[in-house]
Design a protein around this nucleic acid. Structure first.
Lengths: 145, 145
DNA sequence: CACGATTAAATCGCACGCGATATAACTCAA
DNA sequence: TTGAGTTATATCGCGTGCGATTTAATCGTG
């Protein structure tokens, strides 16, 4: 393995992210969702009105080339609708269906399950989240998003 | 967005990992490598003898279904060879070619570039690495790897 | 109003990442 | 020894993630 501090750090980050997705997987399987689909729905569940593809992408730091197929699968699953915004036909507004909104209830237990499986306190999780968010901001301002 | 602490933490982890890969990308593009390919090569560069697919997978926490295609691409690029172990024909030993070994020199500057772009001190990187490694271990013992 | 520049999504190609399964090789107990 | 069970790798299918490009709509400046 590389013995450089940054490579070791990035590998830890990489493997931890994979491990987290594998922790979500059995919980999301019950809902027929993948992790990115769950992320997109999480944005929708907390949005007062129908966000655009771009604003969901901004929240998750994902390109439209990634997000469009994800949203199409959610549409095919009957969880969201996709419609061009009449005020700006370039934009596509994503709205929850009743089924999509109802799924929030069935997903409500997931966060507590994840916290428990990490074995970390809420303080520890918040500290880590803060550090990772700062890292994320720095890396993204290097490259101009 | 979800307001649950664990979802926010996992999103931060997810976006930070994506950001890290985008930071490596321009550096690795010069070498014709992807990030997982670089990880696999890193294992090989620090291995005294030719490791098996399984041992590389153990180091990176990747399944053979992920690693086999990665290693085949490295083989096609002329960086590694793949041969069945005569002592146990189930195992495949991955060895660096001269070209693959020489690539280590051209990649030597990458870790310092990454450290610099994170804007973090080595202490901060090590602390984060430690926390993420512990998280990784906990999550993986939940699910039996 | 015109028209080049910008913007928002979508499309395409490629490389993961993994679950499920297949295949071949090894182990071990009857 | 043999054959059931285990192990190591490979294969397949699906869903990302993103760079490059395309398409369509809007903006801005003359």
């Amino acid at each position: 393995m590389s013995s450089s501090p940054s490579d070791m750090f990035c590998l830890a980050l990489y493997t931890a992210t994979n491990a987290v997705q594998q922790t979500y997987r059995p919980l999301l399987d019950e809902l027929g969702l993948t992790y990115p689909q769950y992320l997109a729905l999480s944005v929708l569940w907390s949005s007062p009105s129908a966000p655009t593809v771009g604003s969901i992408g901004a929240a998750l730091h994902l390109e439209s080339s990634t997000l469009t197929p994800v949203l199409k699968r959610l549409e095919k699953a009957g969880l969201v609708t996709r419609h061009r915004d009449p005020n700006d036909e370039r934009q596509v507004r994503i709205a929850l269906t009743d089924t999509g909104r109802a799924l929030a209830d069935r997903a409500g237990h997931i966060p507590a399950c994840i916290v428990e499986r990490t074995g970390l306190s809420l303080e520890a999780l918040n500290t880590l989240r803060h550090d990772l968010t700062r890292l994320n901001e720095r890396l993204r301002e290097e490259t101009g998003r």
